[in-house]
């Protein structure tokens, strides 16, 4: 019964946060560009989300005749499902987690790898040059950053002696892991941006070059699912950074653990949006070079040094 309640709460909260992020992002971006953003619909423009939802639900859901129909329909669902499944392992508060697995981190990494299928299949089934280019870029980028995304987390896993998110949170009671694992945090953060293909690393979409990349041919709610999936990805990566490196729900007791968890998560969501407001998109080869030549060795060195220090202490 407890699990059922948790599942419903997590599902509702995550999806409404993802939808609400549309408004948050537009308002924050506007502020950082000296504009106001959507402020007409409802108080502070909050009903903009509702208006957008109504609009996108009533849009024509068109499947191009040249597309591979079955794959075309499945692709956007994959990104939603894999991202939502990853939320099952993240503890929002003590004993508030859908499935407190001993291998939570491995599940998360596995699901984010599966997320690549969504983008690749969308690009492939659209049967369109730009979509295919976008899908190809996305697969290369995500596979590259997947590698050291996992490796950068191993330092945390070694320090907490567990793959379970709850155990890692509890292991941070004395010191948040971003201090000893700063390199791991930086690498994971950058890999997280690339994994959600958010703005500095949004070359799979790259509206300046590829129209809209892999979801060029999508419309209506299928496009909406890619969109919401992207925002859920941001929420997921932010929540995981907060959990693994910033003590999750731990914090001074004048606020409940829930609030601490959400404060930290929303801080990183804000950083994601700030990155979008501030940074230009790198070239495709620069992105790969940066990944393989700098971040990958850095994460390996971080892993080795952490292992050596832990071995020396014990």
């Amino acid at each position: 019964m407890h699990t059922a309640i948790v599942i419903v709460v997590v599902l509702l909260v995550v999806i409404s946060i993802a939808a609400g992020l549309i408004w948050v992002e537009r308002r924050l971006l506007a502020l950082w560009q000296d504009r106001l953003g959507p402020n007409r619909v409802g108080p502070l423009g909050l009903m903009q989300v509702l208006a957008d939802m109504i609009k996108i639900f009533f849009k024509e859901d068109w499947i191009p005749p040249f597309a591979d129909k079955a794959v075309f329909i499945i692709a956007p669902a994959i990104t939603m499902v894999t991202t939502l499944l990853s939320f099952a392992f993240i503890p929002w508060a003590p004993n508030f987690v859908v499935f407190d697995s001993n291998f939570g981190i491995l599940f998360f990494l596995g699901f984010s790898s599966l997320g690549v299928y969504s983008v690749v299949l969308a690009g492939w089934s659209s049967n369109n040059k730009y979509s295919l280019l976008g899908g190809m870029r996305a697969s290369a980028q995500m596979l590259t950053y997947e590698v050291f995304m996992g490796i950068s987390l191993m330092g945390v896993v070694m320090m907490a002696d567990s793959f379970s998110f709850s155990a890692i949170v509890k292991a941070q009671q004395h010191m948040w892991f971003f201090i000893p694992q700063f390199a791991g945090f930086v690498v994971f953060f950058i890999a997280g941006i690339a994994e959600t293909h958010r703005l500095p690393f949004d070359i799979p979409e790259a509206e300046g070059e590829l129209v809209a990349g892999y979801h060029t041919e999508y419309s209506g709610m299928k496009f909406g699912m890619f969109f919401v999936g992207e925002y859920m990805g941001i929420t997921l990566i932010s929540a995981i950074i907060a959990t693994l490196f910033f003590g999750g729900w731990l914090g001074p007791s004048f606020l409940p653990p829930f609030v601490w968890f959400f404060l930290k998560t929303f801080f990183f969501i804000g950083v994601f949006i700030l990155l979008r407001a501030g940074l230009p998109r790198p070239r495709y080869d620069q992105l790969m070079e940066f990944g393989w030549k700098i971040l990958f060795p850095l994460s390996l060195v971080n892993l080795l040094v952490t292992a050596a220090v832990l071995l020396f202490i014990k």
Partner: peptide
């Protein structure tokens, strides 16, 4: 530096 300067725009007056 870019990120910091962008962040400071939070406290600028809106042009709208």
């Amino acid at each position: 530096r870019t990120l910091w300067l962008t962040f400071l725009h939070l406290f600028h007056k809106s042009e709208t």
